[in-house]
Structures are given as structure tokens and as C-alpha cells.
Simulated scan of single mutants.
Amino acid sequence: MDSAAHSSETDQEFKSKTERKNVKRKAISSPYFHRLQRRHFILFDILPIFGVVLAALLSLYLPISALDIGLFILFWALTGIGVSVGYHRYFTHRSFKATPAVAVLLTILGSMAGQGALLSWVAMHRRHHELSDQPGDPHSPNLHGSGIIGGIKGLVHSHFTWMKAHDYPNVVYYAPDLLRDPLISKTARYYYTWVLLGLLAPALLGGLLSQSWWGALSGFLWGGVIRMFVVGHIIWSINSVLHRVGTRPYQSRDYSRNGGVLGLFTFGESWHNNHHAFPESPSFGLQWAIFDPGYWFVRGLSLVGLAWDLRVPTAQRRSSRKKRNVQSL
């Protein structure tokens, strides 16, 4: 090998090592953060499983009521919008602008879902987009080997187990805009208060509307715990399933895919390949007729003057990103 070739190879190795080092600096790995992550994982990801089991056992003695279903749907919708429209489209990608009152409300509703504090969630998701399906992506299902075993390990990791301990994205690097916003930073600081509100509000409503302690318990389970369990798995399925299965109509540098049939349950989040192709768009369906309740909510806000500057890509830009052959698995 001549000296020029050797020098070029050495430069490439140095550049590669430097890039890997810089990536690591953007995230923090420490026992302290891992303890906090495990505590959150147990409280809001493991314990709701027991709540679902308890509700199933209680239903053997007293049938599930219309009030239970109503409270579940109400708080599923409120917290789902909080995560999809608030945490994701507004705070992470800044895909539209909104009044301070709307921003505060979306912070509270998103926090009630129990998916993590706002600044941490935003930092994590911005890191995901930066390194999607590459080393450093916190929840890719595609980095755990090939074959059936590797696929299963990847899906389990990306859907659930990654949350118990992972590198913590540096919020100073990934979310400086939120740190500079005193109103949002102060509101987000009360994350655990808002999570508790999301559990106690349906219990209070259940008790008042049924005039019974049983109604309060049932409201706590259905509008609080079971709702948290369901919303969590809906969000996690985007990380896991839709980086492995679905259609890929748009060019992207990762394995993000669309799963349109899940649109109703995910508030439009299942148009995941669309989103990775145009992350700045508040519309994930990219067309009005495509089922995207999250975007319809944003459009509703804009019609009454509470949101503006919706950055939906033009038809020409969408066409330029189209793949010639739609891929699916």
C-alpha cells in the first residue's frame, strides 16, 4: 500500500472515530440517569400491566359500564393528542406555531400520558431522527442482528425494553429552544404532577358521575391506568412495528414505514414514512382526505386563530421525494 493510500485510510479512520466520539458527547450514560429511567419504567410501563389485570378480574364481578368506556375514550383522546400534536409535532419538530395557552395545554396533556418529561422526550426524539436506524438511535429494531432471533430481539427492544436504561440525550444540545422558554420549562417541570392529574381526574369524574366509590376506582383504572397502558403501546408500536413492516412511498435514509390501518388509533402517527420524509410537516397523512386526526386537530386550532404557519410540503416537493417502486414487507 502506498503512503498516500495509507494516509487516506488513516484520515478516514480518524474521522470515523471522531464522529463516533462526537455522537457520544451528545448523550450521557450514567448510573444516576439509569436509576431514574428504571424508576420511570417500573412506575409507568410495568405497573399499568397490573392495573389491566386488576380491571379484568374486577369485571368478573361488575360488568364494564358505559361510563368506564367513556372515560377511557376521553382520556385516551386527550393524552394521545397531547403526545402526537404537542410533544411530537409542535415541540419536537416545530411544525406549526401556537399561542402560549395552547403550548401550555399541550405540555400538560402530553405529560399526563406518562411517556416522559417534555424536554427529555423531545431530546430523545430529535436524537432518533438524527440517527434513525443507525448506531446511537435509542429505539431502532434494526440493530440487533439478522434472522428471526435478531428480528425478535430488535422488536422487543424498540417496543419496550429500551426504556429501562439508555443513554440520556443532552437536552442542552437537543432542546435548547425549550430551555430558553421560561413558560414551557416551568410547566414541564411539574411532570409528575400532570401524570398524577391524568390518573386522578378520571377517578374523580367516575366517582362524581356514578355517585359511588366503585365508580371512582373504575374511573381510575379505565380512564387512568388502562388508558396509560394503551396509549403507551400505541406510541411504542410506531418505534417497533413501523420500522419493520409497512409501505415506503417516500425516500428516507432509514427503514420508517407507513401503516395506514393504524391511523385511527395512533392519531395519524402511523404515516411514519411520510413523517420521516417530511419531519417539518404537521400533516403526517400529507393530504386532507387521508386519516390523520392529529393534523385535523391542528387545522381546527388554525381555523380559530390558535395556531398558524402550518408547514405542509407542496405537491411538487412530495412528488420529488416519491420512490419509483413502493417497497413493503
Rank of each mutant, 00 (worst) to 15 (best):
S3M: 11
E9V: 13
Q12L: 12
K17S: 13
E19V: 07
K21T: 13
K21M: 15
V23T: 15
V23W: 14
K26F: 13
F33I: 03
R35C: 11
V53T: 05
A56C: 15
L60H: 11
L60G: 11
P63N: 12
I69R: 05
I69D: 06
F72P: 01
F72G: 01
I73L: 14
G86L: 03
R89K: 08
T92H: 09
R94H: 12
A98E: 00
V104P: 04
G116Q: 02
V122D: 05
E130K: 14
L131N: 04
D137V: 04
P141Q: 09
H144G: 08
I149Y: 11
G151P: 04
W162E: 01
K164Y: 15
K164P: 09
A175C: 10
V195E: 00
L196F: 09
L199N: 05
L209S: 04
Q211L: 13
S212V: 01
S212H: 04
A216N: 00
A216S: 01
L217S: 04
G223A: 07
G223E: 00
I226D: 00
R227I: 07
M228I: 15
F229S: 00
I234Y: 02
I238T: 03
L242W: 08
L242R: 04
R244S: 09
G246V: 08
T247C: 11
P249C: 08
Y250I: 01
Q251D: 10
Q251E: 13
R253W: 09
R253F: 07
G260E: 07
H272A: 10
N273K: 01
F278D: 04
F278G: 03
F278S: 05
E280P: 07
F284M: 08
L286C: 14
A289S: 14
G294V: 02
D309A: 14
P313F: 08
Q316D: 15
K323R: 13
S328L: 11
L329Q: 15
